[in-house]
Amino acid sequence: MDDPKKGMTLIVKTITRLTVGLILLFGIYIVSHGHVSPGGGFAGGVIISLSFIHIMLAFGEEAAFKKVNQGIASLFESFGAILFITIAAIGMGSGYFFLNFLRKGEPFKLFSSGLIPLYNIAISFKVASGLFMIVILLMLLKIPKKGEKQ
C-alpha cells in the first residue's frame, strides 16, 4: 500500500489514511439514521462509495483493488437488489407488495418504523457498489495519445 511511485504525494497519503475511516463511518451513520433525521439510503450510499474512491485516487488503483475489486462490487450490487425485492415480496404473504408488517415501535428511536431501515440498508448497498463500479470502469480505460496506434 505504500509504494512511493504510485498515487499522489506523501502528504495526501497521510491525510487520506487519517480521514478515510471517518468518511466511511459518517456514511454508515447517515444510512442507519435515515428515518429519524435528514439523510437516507441514497446520500449515505454515495458517501460510502466516495470513501473508496478517495483511497483509489490517493494510493492508485492497485491499493483500492486489494480492499474491493470488481467482482465484490458486482456481488454487493446484486445482493442489494435481491434484498430490496425480497423484503418487499415478504409483505405479499400477509397483504400486498411493500407492506410494512413489522411493529412500528416508539417514534424518535433508532429501532422504529418497521421495515424502513432495512430498505435504507438495501438501497445503500446498491447505490454504493454501483457508483463505485462506474468510477472503476471509467478510470481503467487507457486512451492512447493522438497519432500513435494501440
Partner: peptide, 17 residues
C-alpha cells in the same frame, strides 16, 4: 427529486463513458 438526483448522476456517467 431525491430519486431524480441519483438517476441524473448515473445518466451523466453513462454519457461520459
Amino acid at each position: 427529486v431525491l430519486t431524480s438526483i441519483v438517476i441524473g448522476l448515473a445518466v451523466t456517467a453513462l454519457i461520459a463513458a
